[in-house]
């Protein structure tokens, strides 16, 4: 019996695990996820509750290890509970972005011609819109609910993914195995989804990872401006609300910002590691 080579998923996974920055990124992300998904169960304090005097420094009250904010709310509760809104919006926005981007890019690259020209003009349009200003406008007209915010972020962020998908499709659709599938009568749908897309995935996975990071930063920015969902505590909201007191009470803004920073850093490290692991040119290194 000949030993079987490990499958592509396993191979990739192995390469990722041998990559230092990917592993540290994954570890960072795992701790962030644990903090936002598991810890709240053990620390059920309501982040909106006023529990102490305003702007108490960390350690003043034994119950408030990270101090209180400008209204006397528990900063630790905010950090523990504030991750969910940020991560949920970030992940949904990234999903919207990737779905639009792949659909548009695949159609443009596969069909070419007028379809390509038209779709790329649309992509160009969304690329010149200043993303944050557009999202702010949408939120101010339609109100700051979860769906509007996630859609606003997704709708302004897809063109780079679409361009990347298109480029991959243009390259792959001329390869022999695609011509062969076409010759045996595979439908367009099969060619797009089953033949070309799986082979275009590696660079798209990297881009999608980085999109998650960008979407989290985007959500944090909107929340900081007070344009996030006012009923959900989030890290950006904490910084925005305490902004005027930042110079007297560093802990109210520094700590939630650190949470955002570490989350995005985790995502970026994973993206960086994936780039190395999935780029065939770098395997010899």
């Amino acid at each position: 019996m000949t030993p079987r080579a490990p499958g592509p998923v396993r191979q990739t996974w192995g390469m990722v695990l041998r990559n230092g920055s990917a592993v540290s990124g994954l570890a960072l992300l795992a701790s962030v996820l644990a903090m936002t998904l598991i810890v709240p169960a053990f620390y059920p304090a309501d982040p909106f509750d006023i529990v102490w005097r305003p702007l108490a420094p960390p350690g003043e009250a034994p119950a408030l290890p990270l101090g209180s904010d400008f209204l006397g709310r528990d900063v630790l509760a905010g950090i523990v509970h504030g991750g969910r809104a940020t991560l949920a919006v970030g992940a949904s926005a990234a999903a919207i972005c990737v779905i639009i981007g792949i659909a548009v890019g695949a159609a443009a690259g596969f069909y070419g011609g007028l379809v390509d020209g038209g779709l790329m003009r649309i992509a160009e349009f969304f690329q010149v819109l200043p993303a944050l200003l557009f999202a702010m406008t949408l939120v101010s007209l339609f109100g700051p609910d979860f769906v509007t915010i996630a859609t606003a972020i997704g709708v302004v962020s897809w063109p780079p993914i679409a361009r990347l998908t298109r480029a991959e499709f243009l390259r792959i659709r001329e390869l022999d195995y695609v011509r062969a599938s076409r010759a045996v009568g595979a439908s367009d749908r099969r060619l797009i989804w089953r033949v070309i897309l799986p082979n275009a995935l590696p660079p798209l996975i990297v881009a999608a990872t980085l999109t998650v990071g960008a979407a989290i930063l985007f959500e944090a920015g909107l929340a900081f401006l007070g344009l996030g969902d006012p009923n959900a505590m989030s890290w950006g909201l904490m910084i925005g609300a305490n902004r005027d007191f930042a110079l007297e009470a560093w802990w109210t803004v520094t700590l939630p910002g650190l949470a955002i920073f570490l989350t995005v850093l985790g995502v970026s490290l994973v993206g960086d590691g994936l780039t190395d692991a999935l780029d065939p040119k770098r395997h010899d290194r």
Binding site: L217, I239, L247, V253, T254, I260, F261, V264, L265
Partner: peptide
């Protein structure tokens, strides 16, 4: 350089601004 730029990219702009204020103004 990779580390520095990765950190710069991952930090929210408004947070960097507030940190700079805390250090170089306060």
């Amino acid at each position: 350089v990779t580390g520095v730029t990765l950190a710069g990219y991952s930090a929210p702009a408004f947070w960097v601004g507030i940190l700079l204020l805390l250090v170089f103004s306060a």
